[in-house]
């Protein structure tokens, strides 16, 4: 179980980080989602939240592979603002990613409920933080279509920073869960 948690940590890291060498992401999202899916495959036995997260990880894995063929020129993680047909799959992928994180956090919260360490409380808090930031980002994102880029650049920068902080907070939460597993549960 501990190794499953660390696979999720590494998976979240790969999804979050984009390291490009001549426009090629050498840390592809698909590899990240594969690691998350493999980690959650083991954890899904623990509760239904992990099971939901596991399903989302597979969906996102398929999406990240398809994205390489559908939008070879698009930056991974960005939304090419061409048409509604282009936007909808990205919006759906963001929604599935939110459900994935919801599954992980609620899974940890449910599994560690009542444990002295207070990990369930931390999971709850970080989930709220993640959801708030994600919803704020999703609210602001479509304004890119209509507002002047000079106005939007600082807003997008601040939002991206907040999203990154929230994602790192989730990543550290899973790491804490893995450590606690090592110390108390095995």
């Amino acid at each position: 179980m501990r190794s499953a948690c660390y696979r999720i940590v590494w998976g979240l890291f790969l999804v979050l980080a984009d390291l490009r060498v001549e426009f090629v992401d050498i840390l592809p999202d698909s590899l990240g989602y594969l690691l998350i899916a493999s980690g959650l495959w083991q954890l899904q036995r623990l509760n239904g939240y992990f099971k939901a997260g596991h399903l989302c990880a597979w969906l996102l894995l398929i999406w990240s592979i398809l994205q390489l063929f559908w939008y070879p020129d698009a930056e991974i993680g960005s939304v090419p603002m061409h048409s509604v047909i282009d936007l909808l799959p990205h919006l759906l992928a963001s929604a599935v990613h939110i459900v994935l994180i919801y599954g992980i956090c609620r899974g940890i919260q449910a599994y560690t409920a009542g444990v002295e360490s207070g990990l369930d409380q931390q999971a709850r808090f970080r989930l709220h933080m993640f959801m708030t930031v994600q919803l704020l980002w999703l609210f602001i994102h479509p304004f890119l279509l209509n507002l002047d880029s000079n106005v939007m650049i600082p807003v997008v920068f601040v939002c991206s920073l907040l999203v990154m902080i929230a994602e790192i907070a989730i990543l550290l939460l899973v790491r804490l869960f893995a450590r606690q597993w090592t110390e108390n549960m095995e």
């Binding site: 509604v84 919006l91 999703l138 602001i140 279509l145 209509n146």
Partner: peptide, 9 residues
Amino acid sequence: SWIGNVWYY
């Protein structure tokens, strides 16, 4: 926000 912005666009 999405419906409004996409419609306006």
